[in-house]
Every structure is written in C-alpha cells, then in structure tokens.
Simulated scan of single mutants.
Amino acid sequence: MLRNKTFSKAVFATLAGVGMITMLAQQLHAETTVTTSIETIRTDVGGLTLDYAGLKTEVEGGFGGLHYDATLSAGDMEGVGARDLDIRAGYLFGDVAGPAVAYEYAKIGSEAMDRVLVGIEGAYSLSDAAKVGGRLVSDIDEFGDDYTLTLDGDYALGEGLTLTGEYEHVRLGTMDSDEAKIGARYGLTEAAFLDGKVTYTDAEGVDATGVEAGIGFSF
C-alpha cells in the first residue's frame, strides 16, 4: 500500500499536532515526557548483515482518560536513508479500556508506506509498582486482515529504577513479525531520566537485534 506522501509533510504535521497537544496538556497540568535516544539495529537476512544507526525521539503524555504518544526516528542503513513515524492516541474509560487510533509511516530509500489503524486498548494496575496494558488495532483499509497486537508492562523497583517490557505482533499482508523489548529507566532528578532498551525482532525468518540508549525529560 504505497502512497505518494513526503516525509517532510508528515514530520511537520506530527510536530504541529504534538506541539498543540503538549500545550493543551500543560494548560491542564498534565505530564508530558520527551525522550531522545541513539538507536542501532543489526539485521540478518539470509546470511547478509545490514546495520542501521539513527536517532529516535518519543513524546508521550495525556490528561484525564485521554493519552497520546508519537515516535519519530531517522537513520541510515548501509547508505540508504530510513524514516519512521508512529502516532498513537486512545481514551480509557474508568482507566480500564477504550478506543484507540494510530497512524504509521515508514520510508526506506524511495519506497514509502503509511496506514491508519483503529481498535481497542486496555490497562490495569496490578499494584502500586506494577502496571500492564495492551492494544489491538487494525488497518482501516484491510480491517481484520492487517493488524497490530501490543502488550506492555512496567515495574517500579524503587530508588528511581523502573523495568519495562513490550511485545508486539504485526500482521501485514501475508507477513507476520514479532518484536520483544526489555528495558530500564533510571531517574536522575524529578524531571530527568536515563532510558535504555534491547530489542529482538523475528519477521518470517529475518532476525534483527537492537539497542537504544537515551535521556528523557518530564514537564
């Protein structure tokens, strides 16, 4: 599903939208978190190794039952430019479950693809320290056939350290992929923290391992 869209327009729309939501969130005294990370990924395709290196910026926040997050990444894979943009939003009724919507854009070299997904999500606090959540969204153009299932959780160990985990299964056409992320976040101050993750992806026999390390701020 290729569409003639420019990445610059997508970036501008995302930054404008996130900026507006962030300003509104600040007016409502909601917390917004911005994290910038260095990302490296090594992919093994039939014995051929491809290395990717780039930067990733994540913005997340919310107010009331509404929450949002956006991820923008840009880098280079063996001399070929790669760009990704993900925007997600949802509303939890009673902080338990509700509707979800997402927009995804990806470009490698001259090939670009985007899609809009809708579905449901949920969250539950197991304790004051442990939280779990999940989301199931499907492409509006291929509803029920192309979808993304995400499960995540975090556990606060105390002393500013929080462990995080995420599993994501994606069905796109006839291809299935599974990705697992394990990470940790360490608070430097009330407003700043260090963030790190290791990732593993299996997409129809194509393996990819990655590392992310960055710093974030809450305001």
Score class of each variant (00 low, 15 high):
residue 143 F to Q: 07
residue 113 M to D: 14
residue 115 R to C: 01
residue 97 A to W: 13
residue 157 L to T: 06
residue 190 E to G: 07
residue 186 Y to A: 05
residue 109 G to S: 09
residue 137 V to D: 08
residue 182 I to K: 09
residue 129 A to R: 09
residue 79 G to M: 10
residue 101 V to A: 14
residue 86 D to S: 09
residue 129 A to F: 00
residue 71 T to V: 14
residue 143 F to H: 06
residue 190 E to Y: 07
residue 165 G to S: 12
residue 150 T to K: 11
residue 69 D to C: 01
residue 103 Y to I: 04
residue 77 M to E: 15
residue 165 G to H: 08
residue 173 G to W: 03
residue 113 M to G: 12
residue 169 H to A: 10
residue 140 I to H: 01
residue 121 E to S: 07
residue 114 D to W: 01
residue 156 A to P: 03
residue 67 H to L: 10
residue 75 G to Y: 15
residue 126 L to Q: 03
residue 189 T to C: 14
residue 165 G to A: 12
residue 154 D to P: 00
residue 105 Y to I: 02
residue 101 V to T: 06
residue 184 A to D: 04
residue 71 T to K: 14
residue 74 A to T: 10
residue 193 F to L: 03
residue 110 S to N: 12
residue 69 D to Q: 14
residue 193 F to Q: 04
residue 100 A to Q: 09
residue 83 R to I: 07
residue 93 F to L: 11
residue 121 E to M: 09
residue 118 V to F: 05
residue 153 G to D: 04
residue 122 G to V: 08
residue 189 T to Q: 13
residue 83 R to Q: 15
residue 88 R to H: 12
residue 188 L to S: 12
residue 179 E to L: 10
residue 117 L to Y: 06
residue 140 I to Q: 00
residue 71 T to N: 13
residue 75 G to K: 10
residue 99 P to F: 03
residue 192 A to H: 13
residue 174 T to A: 15
residue 142 E to Q: 13
residue 186 Y to P: 04
residue 145 D to W: 10
residue 93 F to D: 05
residue 194 L to I: 12
residue 176 D to R: 03
residue 179 E to K: 12
residue 115 R to G: 09
residue 148 T to A: 11
residue 167 Y to S: 08
residue 108 I to P: 04
residue 170 V to W: 05
residue 91 Y to Q: 04
residue 161 L to I: 05
residue 144 G to N: 05
residue 139 D to N: 08
residue 127 S to P: 00
residue 103 Y to L: 01
residue 90 G to F: 06
residue 159 E to W: 14
residue 137 V to Y: 05
residue 73 S to G: 10
residue 177 S to W: 10
residue 173 G to T: 01
residue 157 L to R: 09
residue 98 G to D: 01
residue 162 T to P: 05
residue 150 T to A: 07
residue 175 M to S: 15
residue 162 T to G: 06
residue 183 G to F: 08
residue 104 E to H: 11
residue 131 K to D: 04
residue 133 G to C: 03
residue 99 P to E: 00
residue 69 D to N: 15
residue 102 A to D: 08
residue 104 E to C: 04
residue 155 Y to L: 12
residue 161 L to F: 13
residue 108 I to F: 11
residue 179 E to N: 11
residue 187 G to T: 07
residue 130 A to Y: 03
residue 96 V to W: 07
residue 183 G to Y: 07
residue 159 E to Y: 14
residue 190 E to V: 07
residue 90 G to K: 03
residue 187 G to N: 15
residue 137 V to W: 00
residue 188 L to W: 12
residue 76 D to H: 14
